[in-house]
Write a protein that binds this DNA or RNA. Structure first.
Lengths: 349, 349
DNA sequence: TTGTATGCGTTATCAG
DNA sequence: CTGATAACGCATACAA
């Protein structure tokens, strides 16, 4: 038998209205009423009927999602899709879920933050892409008493309601362990990535550190590890020549590890130059990456369930502010290993 | 603006009751009323409010889940946990979700089927563990017009509303591809598994076939592949001696592939005998398997998101019979690669 | 500070 | 065959 508000009202010898006020801390309730109600709630074990609540609700709660524009950085297409899935699933509820895209630059980020603040949200989900600015935004939200959730990038100083993403250091270690599995006697490893933004992201570093750490702690055959930073904004694809040049100088290179999501660019160079004896490990299931994975140019992709990042963030926020549940402050997602054999079954691609 | 039943009733110039009868095909509706309603529904774009429906609903829908007793076969603990999660999540709805466990024997399975039939379910989720009996059960359900979903094991003849599980052949191919990554010049592969049941399961065979198929289709270094079937019911752990004996005879064995979930038993033997130079690949994240994975005795486990199998099955059935949505007839889950580096992040273990 | 009445969108019942 | 109406459990506005 389900316990309703009227049941505990009867038991506490007050009216339903008073019970409601007590439960939701709205309006004033006398001490003796409060005590009786509290007792009744405990004894009968009241659980609010969230569906009935939603039906009766007048105003809707607003959740704002701030994320980099998928048009600018392809990675964000999948978290965006996850958010859309959550929106659809929660469409029956009196909930307004709004998305704000920002270009991956500090000024755009700040502008988006301002819009979010102005629109009086009941909860904010955002990607703390720029360390300082994200911290300031977090402070502002805290002052306004608006709960916020971080996705994808872990911010070491802000204290969001929850973080949803991958343990980047762990992901790097995993990549290294796979690399180790395939290593032969002589080998050199190249860590390289092509970056567009000026910004260097902490999770990319963590992926590199985890990778290196794995070998440091093991008594395996120790690879020689090289680093090569390629800037996409240097003029006219000079990074292609840089990479080819490096490989000529280091013919023992057996593995290339790309800690950001642009392995497909490296793959493209290898393919053009007909280099086939190098194992290429990258991150994230962008369409381009998947294409090269299927063609065998990329050997392994590390996945971070990007779609789930968006989906879970919205769901967690919903549970937190609508159902008023406590939610875990860290939600690490699985670190997925994808090759051409299992990519077709991944994340409903 | 949300379109309600009364809105289309007004537009169609009939009462809400008639609209309801038409939409749910309950009772009789005159032709002209039906036409007008249909037109109004199309023009206004009516979407039922599932939350309000649930509130008004009198009788609850019953979903029955038939699965092997987790106490008998440890694998089923996780699908069982997934079902529990779904039950909790759907607790606000007028839904009765019941579980029936059966011992992994034909007679027990048949008994469970009978109970399921007798209890007048609105939907049945079951594991088609025994081919013939599962087919008969499926027929019976079809006759009674009760929708059913299969989980974990694909039944080639029955036509369930949906199948949820892994592509076993694909999983075998994946295992082989990982094996290939690690292979050195000389190598032999042993495929072996310890079975308790008399029954041989089709998905175990598919895992073996996929494994072998991978090598057949590639121009890689071809391993010599051996098979060794070990019965757990042969007296007094004689299978241990059999395995050790095999390895003595075939010192080039570099890999052992265990297509069922009992890799931990093989691991235990290897550990006891101090054999460390063999790569061991198994299936499923049973606690025992995870233990050996972390100790480095098992190198790789193929995961099939067993928890999600249970969870998704219930959710799909809910969507099908409660929201009356169409659901996909095949739901392949990801084929996960787990080693000691990423196991801690898997399925919220 | 408290009690009561009304409505949310649907289902189900009952009288026409 | 059809229309009217009382629930369902909760939120909210208003009266006391």
């Amino acid at each position: 038998m389900k316990i309703r508000i009227v049941d505990i009202a009867k038991k506490a010898e007050v009216s339903a209205g008073t019970v409601d006020r007590f439960i939701h801390q709205r309006g004033k309730v006398s001490n003796k009423a409060a005590e009786k109600i509290q007792k009744a709630v405990k004894e009968l074990g009241y659980e609010p009927d969230i569906l009935a609540r939603n039906l009766a609700l007048k105003k809707e709660l607003k959740i704002i999602c701030l994320l980099p524009d998928p048009k600018e950085t392809k990675y964000w297409e999948r978290p965006d899709a996850g958010i859309n899935k959550a929106i659809k699933e929660l469409s029956s509820f009196k909930l307004a879920i709004e998305k704000i895209y920002f270009a991956p630059r500090v000024d755009a980020f700040n502008g988006a933050c301002k819009i979010a603040i102005d629109s009086k949200a009941d909860g904010v989900i955002y990607v703390p892409m720029f360390f300082n600015e994200s911290g300031i935004f977090a402070e502002k939200l805290k002052t306004l008493n608006i709960p916020y959730i971080h996705i994808n990038i872990h911010h070491s100083e802000a204290t969001p309601l929850s973080f949803i993403g991958q343990n980047a250091f762990g992901a790097g270690k995993l990549a290294a362990s796979l690399c180790q599995m395939a290593l032969r006697e002589k080998h050199e490893v190249l860590i390289t990535y092509i970056s567009k933004e000026q910004q260097e992201y902490s999770h990319h570093h963590a992926r590199i550190e985890g990778f290196i750490n794995y070998f440091e702690n093991k008594k395996f055959v120790q690879p020689v590890i090289h680093h090569l930073n390629l800037k996409i904004d240097t003029n006219n694809r000079s990074y292609e020549k840089q990479l080819i040049g490096f490989l000529k100088e280091h013919p023992n290179t057996s593995t290339i590890y790309v800690p950001n999501s642009r392995a497909f660019r490296i793959a493209s160079i290898l393919q053009k130059s007909n280099i086939t004896n190098i194992m290429l490990i990258g991150f994230d299931t962008l369409d381009e990456n998947i294409q090269f994975l299927k063609e065998g140019v990329i050997d392994i992709l590390i996945g971070q369930q990007s779609k789930s990042q968006g989906y879970n963030a919205v769901m967690l926020m919903f549970n937190a502010i609508f159902r008023k549940e406590k939610i875990a402050d860290i939600n690490y997602l699985p670190i997925d290993v994808l090759n051409c054999q299992n990519i077709d079954y991944y994340e409903g691609l």
